[in-house]
Structures are given as structure tokens and as C-alpha cells.
């Protein structure tokens, strides 16, 4: 079960990676009469592939709670967090088109990640005080 599970996860990861490869058909579709948006083309196939990946990852997440709980808590939490970050990355990169934007814009919109890290680190001493010797 465990091995099957990770096999499924790797398949989805590969599928997502394949889906994200710049689509050659999009370029030809663009050339056939949509000159104004030649650089955009049609990403419809990519969109569907990402949707399938997101759905499968959601199912795998729910399964992880079912099947990995008794095995290893750490493995389950690690798997959940990795899959969630992959999903968030797919939405931001493909649905929100960050993969197709200029790097400057990507850097600007990633600024909140830095501030989020500061906020979490700033709250850490409060939380960690629980385990410090009195």
C-alpha cells in the first residue's frame, strides 16, 4: 500500500511536470490566425492537465490521512505539506500565469512570502516558550 501510494504520487508529479512543459501545439494554434495573441496561444490542454493533477493530489491527501496515520506521523505530515505546496505552486504558475510573466513581476508578487516568513519566525519565541525550561 505504502509503495503503491508513493508510486501514484511520483506519477502525478511527473504528469504535472509534463503538463507544464511549454506546449508546442499552442504555438501552432496561435500561428493559425490569432496573431494579436501569438505569444499566448491556447493553454487549454495545460489547464485540463493541471486540473487533473490538482484533483488527484487532493484525493491522495485524503488517502494520506487514512493510510499513513498509523505508520508514521512525520511521513504523513511531510507528504501532506509537500503535496499542498505542489498544488499551490501549480495554481500560481499555470492558472495565475506566473510561469508566463516577466521575472520582475514574479519577484514582486513573491514578496509576501518573505514577510510571511518573518511573521511566523516572529511568533516562534511565544510558541517555543512552552518547551523552554522555566
Amino acid at each position: 500500500m505504502f509503495i503503491l501510494y508513493f508510486f501514484a504520487f511520483i506519477c502525478v508529479a511527473l504528469f504535472a511536470k509534463y503538463a507544464m512543459a511549454p506546449a508546442a501545439p499552442a504555438a501552432t494554434a496561435a500561428a493559425s490566425g490569432h496573431d494579436a495573441h501569438a505569444h499566448e496561444g491556447s493553454h487549454r490542454g495545460t489547464y485540463i492537465a493541471v486540473a487533473v493533477s490538482l484533483t488527484v493530489l487532493t484525493v491522495l491527501e485524503v488517502m494520506a490521512v487514512e493510510f499513513l496515520k498509523a505508520k508514521s506521523h512525520f511521513a504523513m505530515v511531510a507528504v501532506l505539506i509537500v503535496m499542498t505546496l505542489v498544488k499551490a505552486f501549480l495554481v500560481a504558475a499555470i492558472f495565475m500565469h506566473l510561469r508566463f510573466e516577466r521575472r520582475t513581476l514574479v519577484l514582486i508578487v513573491c514578496a509576501p512570502l518573505m514577510f510571511a516568513t518573518f511573521l511566523f519566525l516572529g511568533l516562534m519565541p511565544d510558541s517555543a516558550s512552552l518547551w523552554l525550561p522555566a
Binding site: 491527501e61 494520506a64 501532506l80 499542498t84 499551490a88 492558472f95
Partner: peptide
Amino acid sequence: VGLYWHFVDLVWILLFTFVYLIP
């Protein structure tokens, strides 16, 4: 309008894992 909607979706993806799933 799509950017806004995908952001809401993205937040739910995080929320589902961190609030609902992780025991």
C-alpha cells in the same frame, strides 16, 4: 477577475491541509 478567483482557490488549498487534514 480570474487572478482574484485563483487566489481564493489557492488559499483554500492551503487551508484544507493545515486546518482540516493535519492531525
